[in-house]
């Protein structure tokens, strides 16, 4: 669990980071270092922020930094591929920057076309967890962050809950809260602690992986049955940038949108294999799912297979090669069925 080591523990540090982000972004746009800046601004619902595309330095006052900054903004970068006239400034958290490293390694954006403001991240809030803690019938009208707490107001109630209790799953066992690369680090000197135990991250899937295969399959099939094929998981994933996804291909047609479960499974397995060795567990797919399917059960397991087999952790090394672009004669193959 990330704990803020800052004694002031709370809005003091967040406000400093927010102030830093605004100043740096304004400077980038003023000096022409970046033509557009992508950050977060106040959302229209409690517990939300929303991506902001800012081009005027004076608009940088809209930028915010809170535990509601859940989106991985690197998802927008492939749209700027090949745009030599645009340098994009953007805010990245510890996980987001790792997808950015992968996008650079995979030639989706060039390093000199991005200006990175790194933010030491103490984790983002999982809205579904908040709803569960509070009770789904209680409608939140306003949410405020106060130090380590979240203050929720609704019709006839005001509840204070610990942010730590409602952090998103990937944040609970985050090992890289501080971005591994950046041009500027906001909140200078501000430190967040990280989870030092690599196994902790896999605890949540351990139980599932140890089930007999038929039980795993029936659980998986039941969850995938709930999928409505909106492809929000794919669209929210920065690493799902194929101009044409295999499920959209018409000639040949790989996937029908039939009643059958098998096509839904094909999509999800296809996707998870496609991000194997690339996924950084930012949680964007899980968060985007409108029916709450925990796709991380698949991606997290894939991450473990990659880690155990190849000792590889995705998105940490800008000078390395993507896992699937390397080959050694002694590469293990025992995970192949």
């Amino acid at each position: 669990m990330n704990k803020m080591t800052d004694g002031a523990a709370g809005n003091g540090a967040r406000d400093t980071i927010q102030e830093g982000i605004r100043k740096i972004a304004a400077k980038m746009l003023e000096s022409g270092e970046a033509q557009v800046f992508i950050g977060y601004e106040e959302g229209t619902l409690p517990l939300r922020t929303t991506p902001a595309f800012i081009t005027c330095p004076e608009d940088t006052v809209r930028l915010v930094w809170t535990p509601f900054c859940e989106n991985n903004l690197t998802v927008y970068l492939p749209e700027y591929k090949g745009r030599d006239d645009v340098t994009v400034g953007l805010i990245v958290k510890g996980c987001d920057v790792r997808t950015l490293v992968n996008l650079i390694l995979e030639n989706q954006i060039s390093r000199d076309r991005v200006k990175i403001i790194g933010v030491p991240c103490e984790g983002v809030i999982d809205r579904a967890k908040v709803a569960k803690v509070l009770g789904t019938d209680r409608i939140i009208r306003d949410s405020k962050v106060a130090g380590p707490s979240l203050v929720l107001e609704g019709d006839g109630f005001e509840v204070e809950i610990e942010i730590e209790d409602v952090l998103a799953d990937p944040c609970e066992a985050c090992r890289h809260p501080v971005p591994v690369i950046y041009d500027v680090l906001a909140g200078n000197g501000y430190e967040v602690s990280k989870d030092e135990n690599p196994e902790r991250a896999y605890l949540e899937i351990k139980q599932f992986v140890e089930l007999p295969s038929d039980e795993r399959f029936s659980f998986f099939a039941r969850k995938i049955e709930e999928c409505i094929q909106c492809y929000a998981c794919r669209q929210a994933c920065p690493l799902c940038y194929c101009p044409e996804c295999f499920v959209d291909r018409q000639t040949p047609k790989w996937v029908s949108r039939w009643r059958g479960l098998s096509d839904k499974i094909l999509f999800h397995l296809g996707r998870v294999l496609h991000v194997a060795g690339r996924c950084v567990d930012c949680g964007a797919c899980r968060r985007a799912c409108p029916v709450g399917i925990d796709l991380r059960l698949l991606t997290k397991h894939m991450e473990k297979v990659v880690s155990d087999s190849f000792g590889y952790e995705s998105g940490l090394d800008l000078d390395g090669l993507p896992l699937l672009a390397t080959y050694r004669r002694d590469d293990p193959d025992d995970f192949i069925l």
Partner: peptide
């Protein structure tokens, strides 16, 4: 700009009604 291009809004919309027809 911030739209991701997924179908959450249309599929959860009670009035969106566009469809496709195909032979399987």
């Amino acid at each position: 700009r911030k739209c991701l291009g997924c179908a959450v809004c249309t599929y959860l919309c009670p009035t969106c009604h566009c469809f496709d027809i195909g032979d399987e």
